[in-house]
Amino acid sequence: RLSATMVETLAGCMFEDIQYADIQVEAAVGRGTFGVVFKAVWKGKDVAIKTIESDNERNAFLVELRQLSRVNHSNIVKLYGFCDNPVCLVMEYAECGSLYNRKSYCV
């Protein structure tokens, strides 16, 4: 769960508090900066769920949550929100995978 201090740190950021029970997790698709990334369905759309695996990864989680909540651009993965139990980000699913692993653009 996110502590009260962590939630206070996120004040002013735009995202939705999502209930994990509303997400249908399908399969693990890789690893992110922290934790495992899963493909899932939320509100009828494909999403990526980024989890954290330890308390040490919470700072990276907060940084990514803060950064993604402040941007809105078609070339940046959209943040829909987060869950606090278990702690995870709910993001737009990028069908072609990570740019880090791509040698050419997905069309």
Rank of each mutant, 00 (worst) to 15 (best):
S69R: 06
Y20S: 00
R31E: 13
V29Q: 04
A60K: 07
L2K: 01
S54G: 09
Y100L: 06
G81R: 03
S74M: 14
K45N: 11
M91F: 00
M14F: 11
D84C: 13
A94P: 07
V87E: 00
Q24Y: 13
L10T: 03
D17E: 14
K50D: 08
S54I: 00
G44H: 11
L65R: 07
H73S: 10
A48W: 10
E92C: 00
K43D: 12
E8Y: 06
G12N: 04
R58M: 12
A4Q: 12
K45Q: 08
E92T: 00
A27Y: 10
V29E: 10
S3K: 11
E8T: 11
Y80H: 07
N85I: 07
C13K: 02
I18M: 08
K50W: 10
E92L: 01
N101W: 08
F34I: 03
V71H: 10
V29P: 07
A28T: 08
G32Y: 02
A40Q: 04
G32H: 06
A40V: 04
R31Q: 11
A40Y: 03
K103Q: 15
V107E: 14
V87S: 02
N85K: 15
C13G: 09
K78Q: 09
M91V: 03
G30Y: 12
A11C: 13
Q19R: 15
F38R: 07
A48F: 09
L65D: 03
A11H: 09
R102F: 06
F38A: 01
C106K: 00
Q19L: 14
L62H: 04
F61W: 04
T51Q: 08
C96H: 09
M14Q: 13
A21H: 14
E64R: 01
V25M: 14
G30W: 07
A28R: 10
V41S: 11
D17S: 14
K43F: 05
R66N: 02
F15C: 01
E95N: 03
M6K: 07
I76D: 00
A28Q: 12
I23D: 02
K103R: 15
D22Y: 13
W42L: 01
V47Y: 08
S74H: 14
A11S: 15
N85E: 15
V25A: 12
S104F: 09
L99F: 04
L79M: 10
G97F: 05
L99P: 05
L2D: 01
E92Y: 06
E92G: 02
I18H: 03
N75A: 09
N85S: 13
F82Y: 15
C83S: 02
G97K: 03
D22S: 15
I52T: 08
G30T: 03
C88W: 11
M91C: 04
